[in-house]
Design a protein around this nucleic acid. Structure first.
Length: 110
DNA sequence: CTCCTGACTAATA
DNA sequence: CTATTAGCCAGGA
């Protein structure tokens, strides 16, 4: 597998993976990176999502961290992300976490 | 070029 | 459970 992709190309590939996450499912940053062929690019996933325009077609809200939590980011809170996931029938624990055993999207199930 | 930062993870303590 | 350390890698100053 290609491990040395141009940074810009990698970003597009990561976003392409996110676009494939079905409604009602979530994926972790590490999963998205691995599916894109760059298992060490989890941080790049977060950066790519942060740079998305408001009118993007990329379902950025379906990406959570390895614990099933909405990763805290600078600025405004993650309430919008949680609301969008709830709209898709994704459930949250009292701790504010998604049960990855039930809602984690795995590429081979695509 | 170096240095710092971060929507990440993993391993310890 | 929390705290610390380390590895990671693209961007920005």
């Amino acid at each position: 597998m290609p491990s040395d992709l141009a940074p810009a190309a990698l970003r597009e590939r990561l976003l392409a993976v996110v676009r494939r996450i079905p409604c009602g499912w979530v994926a972790t940053y590490g999963e998205v990176a691995a599916a894109a062929g760059a298992p060490r690019a989890a941080r790049e996933v977060g950066r790519a999502l942060a740079a998305l325009p408001h009118d993007t077609d990329v379902p950025w809200w379906r990406v959570v961290n390895r614990l099933g939590e909405i990763s805290p980011r600078a600025g405004d809170g993650p309430t919008l992300q949680e609301a969008r996931l709830r709209t898709e029938q994704v459930e949250f624990d009292p701790r504010g976490r998604v049960d990855l055993d039930r809602f984690r999207w795995e590429e081979h199930l695509d």
